[in-house]
Amino acid sequence: MATIIIIYGILAVGLIVSLAKSKEKTKIAFKVAKKSLLKTAPALLTMLGIVGLILGLLTPEKISSLIGAEAGIFATLTAALIGSLTLIPSLVAFPLAGSLLRSGATVMTISAFITTLVMVGIVTFPMEMKVLGKRFTLLRNGLGIIAALLIAFLMGVIL
């Protein structure tokens, strides 16, 4: 809800300023917006469908049973895989991670879950590729996986 208010607030201010300065340019802005939105639409629909499929399979209970039960490198890698695949709002992800930590998952595993969740977005791939290009997206997410795993490892060692 807060997100929606903030975005529409920024938009309202932007539009008022833009209209005051030039009607013509505002029209062009709308044209650009419409064109990009239509061009991105297939990628968006794909993303929506895949998010649903993944979260339909990987419920919070399922995630708990996959990475909460055992320790070790296997659990950490599973956590990284789940984190890369899912797109979960932080209000759901952090409480889940907290409860897993308390129920015995290692810091490394929990870090791997959180870092991949925020740094790697396999489901947002189609959209990111459409908007920022294939090479950019592959590099950013590929490096993101490596970085996320390194960070998780370091956090396991430090904390």
Partner: peptide, 30 residues
Amino acid sequence: RSSEVTWEYFLEMAFILPPVFILMGLMEVW
């Protein structure tokens, strides 16, 4: 379950994305 999740995210995106793309248009212009 999957359809429910998709629907939820669809609603979210339907509200958020149009203004975001208009903002992007304004950025491109201004």
